[in-house]
């Protein structure tokens, strides 16, 4: 393990990666739409060997008192022990909470869902959008895979039939969610002072710092999250913005 870590770092210091990718090269990514029929919308993202499924279940509930006329978005991530020897059963750990909150912020801040249109009766009844992210195999860069899966799943949603207060989940209507944007993230890690896009698991284990840049359709940044125990310089961050602007454009095409 230590030998491999050292090897990854040695290569990183020369700008090389153990899977021979370029510094700004993404792994192959595939999006399968609606693999789960029972969900109102779902998507499975395969990013290299990382596999993530996001499923959307709709519900009816009371709005938050400070936003009485808006639907409710909830993002939750489950790091199931199936996906990695390092995942354990129990309440979500720091990584799972961070992942869910980063995905949530990307969707929320880009106003990807027009939550106002999910109001059924002000103060009383609104649609609740539950985004649940399940990690099936953890082979690095869960944030990007999860965010892509979530946004793809949201665009696939068909609302179930609503009769009074009851939802008839067996009958899907042709109605979709009021979607307005496709926020797309790109995650970088810093190793030996160099930036690498879309880190693999071996790279995440030795990375010094991590930065996720989420942009919306016009290239504007809607969310940033720095992670890891080492710092970034201002130049490195600005470099990441430029790389992200380019890459998110490509990735967004996969969502069309």
């Amino acid at each position: 393990m230590i030998i491999q870590n050292q090897h990854v770092l040695n290569m990183a210091s020369k700008g090389q990666r153990i899977d021979n990718r370029g510094q700004d090269e993404y792994r192959e990514i595939d999006i399968e739409r609606n693999p789960v029929e029972k969900a109102e919308g779902s998507a499975k993202v395969t990013l290299g060997k990382t596999i993530v499924i996001a499923g959307i279940k709709m519900g009816i509930g009371k709005p938050f008192s400070d936003r009485p006329d808006e639907g409710v978005l909830m993002v939750n991530a489950e790091f199931s022990p199936i996906a990695s020897p390092n995942f354990e059963i129990g309440p979500p750990g720091d990584d799972a909470v961070e992942l869910a909150r980063v995905v949530d912020r990307g969707i929320r801040e880009s106003h990807a869902i027009d939550l106002r249109k999910l109001c059924i009766e002000k103060d009383e009844k609104v649609w609740m959008v539950n985004v649940d992210i399940h990690i099936i195999n953890h082979s690095g860069n869960l944030i990007d895979a999860s965010a892509m899966a979530s946004i793809a799943a949201l665009w696939e949603v068909r609302l179930p039939e609503l009769k009074g207060n009851e939802i008839n989940y067996d009958k899907k209507t042709s109605k979709r969610l009021p979607m307005t944007a496709k926020p797309v993230p790109v995650t970088f890690v810093k190793m030996e002072g160099n930036l690498f896009m879309d880190p693999g698991l071996e790279e995440e284990e030795v990375m010094e710092a991590r930065l996720t840049v989420t942009t919306r359709d016009n290239g504007n940044i809607v969310s940033l999250q720095k992670g890891g125990a080492k710092p970034f310089t201002q130049d490195e961050i600005e470099n990441a913005f430029a790389l992200a602007e380019k890459k998110t454009k490509e990735l967004r095409k996969l969502l069309n």
């Binding site: 912020r105 929320r108 801040e109 880009s110 930065l211 919306r216 290239g219 504007n220 940044i221 809607v222 969310s223 940033l224 999250q225 720095k226 710092p231 970034f232 310089t233 201002q234 961050i237 913005f241 430029a242 602007e245």
Partner: peptide, 13 residues
């Protein structure tokens, strides 16, 4: 060096 960077909102680069 920057040790914390978070952002939510909507800004051009």
């Amino acid at each position: 060096e920057i040790t914390l960077l978070q952002m939510d909102g909507d800004l051009s680069v």
